[in-house]
């Protein structure tokens, strides 16, 4: 087998749709989403697990897609920022970020929102401390965090 033909076929779900890609086993989920599937809502910040810009849900749990190799994706279910809106309506947490200035340049926002979704799945009304812990792996260089924490705390409220 020639070296560059060492590709494997991966079948998995992205935003509930079955997907099939043929990639090298160490291709990062981040690159599969952005380069193979055109889902560029997921961002690359650091590429080493530190910033959370690439965060997505894998089987309902928050992960950094820059650290997930293709070889571990088979049969999994991935949810990205593109999967949150339903019938053209934004997810309440997306609306809350818009309403409360939780986003400025927007680069960290997809990751922040995916981390918030992971938190809100387990807790409808998280405390500030819980929000702090759940978003601790997501860095923002613009907002100073207060509007982000506010967006999560007041989600669903007017």
């Amino acid at each position: 087998m020639s070296k560059n033909r060492r590709r494997i076929e991966i079948r998995f779900r992205v935003n509930r749709k079955l997907r099939r890609v043929c990639v090298h086993p160490l291709t990062r989920l981040l690159d599969i989403l952005r380069l193979e599937l055109g889902l560029t809502g997921t961002k690359e910040g650091c590429g080493e697990g530190e910033c959370g810009a690439c965060a997505v849900l894998m089987d309902g749990e928050l992960v950094n897609s820059c650290l997930i190799p293709a070889v571990q994706l088979h049969g999994r279910s991935i949810e990205t920022i593109e999967g949150l809106s339903k019938r053209g309506r934004l997810h309440p947490i997306q609306q809350s970020f818009i309403q409360r200035g939780g986003t400025q340049c927007g680069f960290c926002t997809s990751g922040m929102i995916m981390a918030s979704v992971a938190l809100l799945m387990g807790k409808k009304h998280p405390s500030s401390a819980q929000i702090g812990e759940h978003l601790a792996g997501n860095l923002c260089r613009c907002t100073g965090y207060s509007p982000i924490v506010d967006s999560v705390r007041k989600v669903g409220k007017k």
Binding site: G52, A55, L62, V63, L67, I68, A115, E133
Partner: peptide, 9 residues
């Protein structure tokens, strides 16, 4: 250890 996304993996 790390943050939650790291702890999940």
């Amino acid at each position: 250890t790390g943050a939650l996304a790291i702890q999940n993996r």
